[in-house]
Write a protein that binds this DNA or RNA. Structure first.
Length: 552
RNA sequence: GCGCCCGUAGCUCAAUGGAUAGAGCAACCGGCUUCUACCCGGUUGGUUGGGGGUUCGAGUCCCUCCGGGCGCGCCA
């Protein structure tokens, strides 16, 4: 029996109580069953009586007694007790609890998935780095978290598109080209250019592929370097992100917005909605109509489109492509964009609460041996995604970056990440998976067909088995809340607890027959529990883009 | 100056208004003559930055102060 089924049961009980006149008709709050921190409080607990007390005008404990009395009659429920100010604590019969193992194994790779967001078409845009340098650690948090958000949304049934917006237009591109040209000609890179060592490598690669490039006139040469560098850099970004298992469905070029007429279409859409005005020779969008602190310029007095014009066109284009919800993942240094992006949606005639969502993530502070490393592309002191993967591996990097809520500031020490490899929780979780895999391999070698054998879930009544089953039962709700809150770190934290529950079980409960011991129903039941644990860990790791090894 | 985010154990961080604020690391003590010890058990460690408020209940919500980060262009 799952906690959600318990909740449904209580919803029915409340409806019954209302129809019997035991409690006044009220809008009942959503029923939730949680796993209490202390097992003395049972397998599950609900605060529904406390939440219902005020609207019903009754004492919480009186309500709790009514609910508990009905719950005790529910099949699978061993006991229901009222505790504290009005909590209802439930104990399940071990058979009802043990059924969770069958549920998880039967569901397989879709265990934990739901249809909570089915029908929702979501565009998740993240990283969106300039194509003027490698993906660095500042972007890497989003490479891990953005992809994990996409994965949990998919698990909740949403139709998700991962999108990378390429800022390939504007003065930064020209500075990039100028830097490459200077480097190729043995001249110092301009003060406001890009100074990383990668510029020299890129310049050399460009010259090698096209030796005559440096004999072009300066203006043509700059464009040639810019375009060649852009192509190489973009390819490199795609390749590195692919290595990191973050694969984008769409790489969207800012230039293409201008070339395809999308900018004009976006402007037309905004004009149609009546939020565009002209002042002092410039064209403005009245974003202050929707909570922005100042209006924004779309077209400068000199006739040039602003970057903001691209942003608005991009949003309108996303809508035209059929996305119900556009999620933007931005760094804290862009939090000033939140109001204007929301206002853009509203100016386009959309609902800024429903159609757009801006998630702000704090920046990652990088230290090396306790000393801060400044991530400056221009100063050339960057730590790239490439470096990180090479040093710690994809699994450790992805996991470490996605086990913290994105809105909490994070300090990572590079030396720690390398040295503390064995202490990284990702290995703890993966080890549990490998350990279970080993047990199941051994079972197969012993010729035990646990899947085909009779499974008696009531045999799983050991305290550690009960605890492990309870953890497994939480998985679908963890996934659902991770999707709903856009917080995939919940999956990681959950997996650590689940791994602990498994290791504790394993420590005390022997799974396979020993020596010439005969195969008993308990062995079978425990193998089901192992298989359910493994399936849950594997599915959870997959949501984070982390591998689930069979051996370690 | 205005705005947003943050402040939890020595360190890095959890905790969807719920019961005694939890993990990992670090420190100390213990556990493998049968399924992976990358594991398990135990001990030490807190005025959740300070103060006030809201309520059955606040780390969580509101006000205020302190401290830190970031943002406030017809730049991109």
């Amino acid at each position: 029996m799952t906690p959600d089924q318990l909740a449904d049961t209580v919803t029915d009980i409340i409806a019954t109580l209302v129809s019997e006149g035991a409690i006044p008709p009220v809008d009942a709050p959503e029923v939730r069953f949680d796993r209490p921190k202390s097992r003395e409080h049972g397998d599950y607990a609900t605060n529904i009586a406390l939440a219902l007390a005020k609207p019903a005008g009754m004492a919480p404990r009186d309500l709790a007694v009514l609910v508990a009395r009905h719950l005790e009659e529910t099949p699978g429920v061993a006991s229901a007790e009222v505790a504290g100010p009005g909590f209802v604590n439930i104990r399940l019969e071990s058979a009802a609890q043990g059924e969770l193992a069958r549920t998880a194994v039967t569901a397989g790779n879709s265990w934990g998935h739901s249809d909570a967001l089915s029908g929702l078409t979501v565009n998740v845009e993240f990283i969106s780095a300039n194509p003027t340098g490698p993906i660095h650690l500042g972007h890497t948090r989003w490479a891990a978290v953005g992809d994990a958000i996409a994965r949990v949304l998919e698990a909740a049934g949403a139709d998700v598109t991962r999108e990378f917006y390429i800022n390939d237009r504007g003065v930064q591109m020209d500075k990039f080209g100028a830097s490459l040209m200077a480097a190729a000609n043995g001249r110092p890179v301009p003060e406001d250019g890009y100074h990383g060592g990668y510029i020299l490598d890129l310049a050399a690669a460009i010259v090698a592929a096209r030796p005559d490039i440096t004999s072009l006139p300066e203006d043509k040469q700059l464009v040639a370097f810019r375009e060649a560098g852009y192509a190489l850099q973009l390819t490199q970004q795609k390749q590195v992100l692919g290595l990191f298992r973050t694969v984008f469905d769409v790489w969207f070029s800012e230039r293409s917005l201008h070339e395809s007429g999308a900018v004009e279409r976006g402007m037309a859409k905004l004009r149609e909605q009546g939020h565009v005005f002209e002042q002092e020779g410039a064209v403005w969008l009245r974003t202050t109509d929707f909570g922005d602190d100042k209006d924004r310029v779309l077209v400068k007095a000199d006739g040039e489109y602003t970057y903001f014009a691209s942003d608005t066109a991009y949003y309108v284009d996303k809508r035209a492509r059929g996305f119900d919800l556009s999620i933007y993942l931005l760094g804290a240094d862009h939090h000033g964009y939140v109001n204007r992006l929301r206002a853009v949606a509203a100016c386009a005639g959309d609902d800024m609460d429903a159609n757009v969502e801006v998630l702000i993530g704090q920046l990652v502070k990088i230290t090396r041996g306790g000393e801060e490393v400044k991530l400056s592309k221009r100063a050339g002191t960057i730590v790239t995604l490439d470096d990180l993967v090479e040093e710690v591996g994809v699994d450790a990097a992805r996991y470490t970056l996605s086990r913290y809520p994105a809105d909490s500031p994070l300090t990572l020490d590079l030396e720690d990440m390398v040295r503390a490899t064995n202490d990284n929780p990702v290995f703890y979780v993966q080890y549990a998976h490998a350990r279970i895999s080993s047990v199941l391999r051994n079972a197969a070698e012993l010729g035990i067909d646990w899947e085909g054998a009779e499974f008696d879930p009531s045999l799983l009544d050991h305290e550690r088995e009960n605890n492990l089953l309870g953890m497994i039962g939480e998985f679908p709700r963890v996934v659902a809340s991770a999707a709903e809150l856009r917080e995939p770190h919940r999956v990681a934290r959950y997996l650590e607890d689940l791994a602990t529950a498994y290791h504790r079980f394993y420590d005390v409960c022997w799974v396979l027959p020993r020596g010439d011991e005969e195969l008993a129903p308990l062995h079978i039941a425990r193998l089901w529990l192992c298989a359910a644990s493994r399936q849950t860990i594997a599915n959870g790791l997959d949501l984070l883009g982390v591998s689930a090894p069979e051996r370690m």
